[in-house]
């Protein structure tokens, strides 16, 4: 059981983390959600004992985190990196030994993990001979090879092709089934939605929402409509202009939209019936996490943050 209570961290002129409390349980995946710069990484670093909080405590299994907890923890940082000129096998042995494994045990674990990722032949290759995706797998192995109780993955899927992302996802779910406590940080809401049992939304250093994914979604009710149709899409624009709905996603002949204020699903259906040639699907669903996040932190700040984030990522 990981328990973060009342944690605050100040960097010179910014309050990076402001009175954050959260908990993660064995056998569950806790998603730490929020745009970059929200305080996710700082929170994770305090859990990983890389920095210490100004106020508040971080405990794992009832004990303050410290060098001891680092040994039972695996951390995949967002900033990936390995010793470039070191061979894969030696590197994994070294990282395993730093976590307290004997050399032989580290070697055995590294070999079996590499096998699982179909990467046994990389053992005596230097890291800088590997592709980015291969390096990422090696990095993941370094996170799990000492069989840690607590796992922290910060954007684990970034830079992976879909096949490897699937492989990684199944490994993470396996670890969950083994009863590991898993913390999964991402700004990609749809990934979090797929994988996590619990979520914790963080914005501007504060927790704005937390709980189990199921409960949160239920509490927001069914206020989202999915429509597949053929013909003119003009009804969407006019509804949007009248501020009756907000478009979540939209493709050529499909749309997902959120009902605003007193708009009912029937209202939307009526509007659609008058314009489109045919309707293939009309469904009222729970809003996606992304929408929930926007509702919680306020539309304007969320949009601004996401825009800023996308610029930051591209720039």
């Amino acid at each position: 059981m990981l328990l973060v209570s009342g944690v605050t961290k100040q960097y010179r002129d910014t309050l990076a983390v402001d009175d954050v409390s959260l908990s993660a349980s064995p056998g569950r995946i806790l998603g730490l959600l929020g745009p970059n710069g929200a305080g996710k990484t700082t929170t994770i670093r305090m859990i990983a004992y890389i920095t210490t909080p100004d106020q508040g405590t971080v405990t794992f299994n009832g004990q303050n985190v410290g060098p001891w907890s680092q040994r039972v923890m695996g951390y995949l940082p967002e900033e990936r990196g390995l010793y470039r000129r070191m061979k894969v096998g030696e590197q994994l042995e070294y990282l395993g030994r730093l976590k307290g494994l004997a050399r032989a045990d580290a070697s055995r674990a590294a070999k079996s993990w590499l096998e699982r990722f179909d990467a046994s032949e990389w053992w005596s290759k230097r890291v800088d001979e590997l592709s980015k995706g291969m390096q990422q797998k090696v990095q993941f192995v370094s996170t799990v090879l000492h069989d840690p109780e607590l796992l922290i993955f910060d954007e684990p899927f970034s830079g992976l092709d879909p096949i490897n992302a699937d492989l990684l996802q199944s490994v993470i779910l396996d670890l969950k089934d083994q009863g590991k406590t898993i913390l999964f940080a991402s700004h990609r809401m749809e990934q979090v939605e797929q994988l996590c049992d619990d979520i914790c939304m963080i914005a501007s250093g504060r927790i704005v929402l937390d709980g189990s994914v199921r409960e949160i979604k239920q509490s927001f009710g069914r206020d989202t409509v999915k429509i597949e149709f053929a013909g003119s899409a003009d009804f969407i624009d006019s509804l949007e202009q009248a501020e009756r709905i907000r478009v979540v996603t939209r493709t050529h002949q499909a749309v997902e939209l959120r009902l605003l204020d007193s708009t009912t699903p029937r209202h939307v259906l009526d509007a659609a019936m008058q314009h489109v040639d045919e309707i293939f699907r009309f469904e009222v669903v729970e809003p996606p996490l992304n929408e929930i996040f926007i509702s919680v932190v306020g539309e304007s700040t969320a949009r601004a943050k996401q825009a800023a984030h996308h610029q930051g990522v591209r720039g």
Binding site: A48, I50, P77, R80, Y83, R84
Partner: peptide
């Protein structure tokens, strides 16, 4: 520069 420091910092002082 190899960005390994964060990984090492989570394993050693």
């Amino acid at each position: 520069t190899s960005r390994i420091s964060e990984l090492i910092a989570s394993s050693a002082k």
